[in-house]
């Protein structure tokens, strides 16, 4: 008797757990289909390649795409080397002591700092103290601070996957520590670092709060020509089209189109990273 009851309970229990996963998958499916069904009709060659016109009620989103691209590149330039450097320090040089514990606590806490707080920090440090003004450089720097914890964690993970024998073999031949790292650790760790890095950058590309007050613009008739220009960005453009535009219902299709471009862009970056990681794992197993 108890056995049968146990069996039924187990079936119900497993059913509930399965349902949980289904709910999660369903949420993703709903988000993607909703955006794609409503957004795909707005997508056209002109939408991708033209600037907004007629008070942003017509035209495309090209400046926002370009702006997001450039700000992500700037983020990459600052956050990748810093993230790699910190990971190299933690995994290759540092000993387990108070200092490294402090670094690790800092990394975990930086990962939890709200993005809007990074925005405030960016305003104070880059825009005001450093006198950069509101510009694409200030936004890129702010975003690179925000993504730094992700970059470090990803890079360290990649370094941990390199067998100790690569380092030992190299050192035993008379390599200095840095030579061993440079010639026999980093070359094999970089592909792994790349996956985490792409994930981090995809997050930066989709973020709005940190760029809100550091450089992004509502509308610009021109593209950013240098590091000290303001820029338009896809996520902010979506925010405007969804809530701040003077005729929200009229531009709803454009908002959907923008959302679709943004979501596809981020999805592609993630998919690329996931595939790359999958391949690396397979290679390692072989």
């Amino acid at each position: 008797m108890t056995n049968r009851r146990n069996n039924i309970t187990e079936k119900i229990g497993f059913g509930i757990l399965t349902l949980c996963l289904i709910v999660v998958v369903l949420i993703i499916v709903v988000i993607f289909t909703n955006i794609i069904i409503n957004g795909h009709s707005a997508i056209s060659w002109d939408f991708i390649t033209k600037a907004p016109t007629d008070g942003m009620t017509k035209g495309g989103i090209m400046p926002a795409i370009i702006g997001t691209f450039f700000v992500t590149v700037i983020t990459a330039i600052f956050s990748i080397p810093l993230g790699m450097g910190c990971a190299i320090y933690l995994n290759e040089y540092a000993t387990q002591n108070m200092f490294t514990r402090l670094i690790r606590i800092s990394i975990r806490n930086l990962a939890g700092v709200p993005s809007i707080v990074y925005g405030l920090f960016g305003v104070m440090l880059f825009v005001e103290f450093m006198h950069l003004g509101t510009c694409i450089l200030a936004s890129g720097l702010t975003l690179s601070l925000m993504t730094l914890p992700m970059m470090i964690t990803a890079s360290e993970e990649a370094l941990k996957n390199i067998p100790m024998s690569f380092r030992e073999g190299s050192l035993a031949l008379g390599a200095t520590k840095w030579q061993a790292i440079r010639t026999n650790v980093l070359p094999y760790a970089i592909p792994g670092m790349l996956t985490g890095t792409i994930l981090g950058l995809s997050r930066a590309a989709g973020e709005t709060a940190p760029i809100l007050f550091t450089g992004v613009a509502f509308y610009l008739p021109y593209l950013p020509k240098g590091l000290f220009d303001q820029f338009m960005a896809l996520p902010y453009h979506l925010y405007i089209m969804a809530t701040q535009h003077h005729d929200i219902t009229l531009v709803r299709p454009l908002a959907y189109g923008t959302a679709m471009v943004l979501i596809v862009l981020v999805f592609m970056m993630n998919l690329g990273a996931i595939i790359l990681r999958y391949r690396l794992r397979k290679n390692r197993k072989e």
Binding site: E168, A172, L173, G174, Q179, T183, N184, Y188
Partner: peptide, 27 residues
């Protein structure tokens, strides 16, 4: 460099035969 070492588990680097032997010279 004066005291070479061969490990328990052979640990060639994921390079070519040539590059493996040349490694110590290059560094």
């Amino acid at each position: 460099r004066r005291v070479g070492m061969v490990f328990q588990k052979s640990n060639p680097f994921p390079k070519t035969v040539f590059e493996n032997v040349a490694y110590g010279l290059k560094i």
